[in-house]
């Protein structure tokens, strides 16, 4: 269930990354869903939810895989060296290695969805909003230590030289890409809004949480869409 995959990077560098895979009991020619994890603090808040959705999909005969990408979760690669363009190429590689037929992105991972497969973006988060939230948290945290810096000042610093926000080390490349990032337009990609799932998004919670109703709703929406295709 917990395995790994090898992510090839330019100049012959490789990065071995963890991947959680949940396949249905009955082995057959089932569809395989590649799931791209949410980003930064939302990755932690939504991890359990994401895995529970995978379990529910498996019961519906749909296998899924949730790989780490360099700089995320258990990865040994530093986040400060990553960027959205590279992550998109990594996601395309992961799709090939796992024989994925469809893709589900969670929140910020819509920003690096592979363009080669049909995909659903669950409650996609835009780059500027992700940064605004994290910059604001940093402004508040700095203020508690007596330092007065604005969101704009920290943003300029992030784009020029990179910045640590809420414990996440952003390099200038990732930071500048996020400043303008939104999901690429693709006729084979569609959005699943939180309102379709019902209730409040679990990424809003101050603490990681789980919600069986939302797990069932999201998994059932995806299963219906995959079966319909």
């Amino acid at each position: 269930m917990i395995g790994s995959w090898t992510c090839e990077r330019p100049e012959g560098r490789t990065s071995k990354e963890l991947a959680v895979q949940i396949t249905p009991q009955v082995e057959a020619d089932e569809p395989t869903l590649l799931i791209l994890p949410a980003l930064f603090d939302e990755a932690n808040k939504l991890r359990r939810y994401t895995i529970e959705v995978m379990r529910r999909l498996s019961e519906a005969g749909i296998g899924s895989v949730l790989p780490d990408f360099p700089g995320m979760n258990e990865s040994m690669a530093p986040l400060s060296e990553q960027g959205l363009t590279q992550w998109r190429e990594d996601a395309e590689q992961a799709a090939q290695q796992f024989g994925a037929s469809h893709v589900l992105t969670i929140r910020g991972s819509a920003l690096f969805a592979p363009q080669t497969l049909p995909a659903w973006h669950y409650a996609p988060a835009m780059g500027p909003r992700i940064l605004r939230n994290m910059l604001r948290a940093q402004v508040l945290a700095l203020r508690e230590t007596g330092q007065q810096l604005s969101i704009d000042e920290l943003g300029e610093r992030g784009a020029a030289q990179g910045i640590e926000l809420a414990g996440w080390q952003f390099g200038p490349q990732l930071f500048s890409q996020l400043q303008e990032a939104e999901p690429l337009a693709n006729p084979a990609h569609a959005i699943i809004e939180q309102s379709e799932v019902g209730g409040a998004g679990l990424w809003l919670r101050a603490e990681p949480d789980d919600n069986a109703d939302q797990v069932a709703a999201l998994a059932d929406i995806i299963a219906a869409k995959i079966t319909a295709r």
Partner: peptide, 23 residues
């Protein structure tokens, strides 16, 4: 309500109430 949660609260207020909250 730590600083990360306060930031989330304020950003959500911006979105849902259609306001901009300055530093």
């Amino acid at each position: 309500l730590d600083s990360m949660a306060v930031a989330g609260l304020l950003t959500e207020m911006e979105d849902r109430l259609d306001i901009i909250i300055e530093d």
